[in-house]
Amino acid sequence: MNQLQNFSKGFIKENPVFTLFLGLCPTLGVTTSAFNGLGMGLATTFVLLMSNIVVSLVKSFIPDKVRIPSFIVIIASFVTIVELTMQAYLPSLFDQLGLFIPLIVVNCLVLGRAEAFASKNNFLSSAIDGLGMGLGFAFALTLLGGVREVFGSGSIFGFKFIEGDGMLIFVLAPGAFIALGYLIVLIKKLQKA
């Protein structure tokens, strides 16, 4: 597999949300708008990229038995960095994402890539894998957030294009499940084409 394929697999072919069904809690929880989805996606991308890099560098020093706890500590450190940075520079986004920022630490996508990819591959492949998977995740969250924002509030990235309110149900909890269900169907169709 060349590095370009390694990078691009996260978008459609092995998209973490639409085909692997990983990291579903933040996917459903924060995507009330395209901007929130993008913010969460990029925060996760940073954690995924950095944890993949560090895991691939230190993998030979970590005894096999304490592998998982060590990965969790590495991931939790980067999550704390994101948490404090976002609180300082993007306080409004931090308030919107709320609980889901510390919960990046239990995002199965991050630990899954550390265990399945970074602990077996070299530094460069792991970094590219982390970046690709992270951006694929961000893409999925932005898409879902965009769909919910368009239908739910009649705007995209905060720019309103219809008068009045949209279909409120899309911004509320049920809309998240239903929109994601139909998006999965759509992506499956695209993968076959």
């Binding site: 149900i169 909890a173 049920p174 998240a176 499940f177 239903i178 269900g181 139909y182 169907v185 499956k188």
Partner: peptide, 21 residues
Amino acid sequence: KPLKGVPIAFIVAGLLAMAFM
């Protein structure tokens, strides 16, 4: 057929969430 498996599970979950609302 296209909804079989996970997609229909999400849609059902959506309806369940609606009921809980």
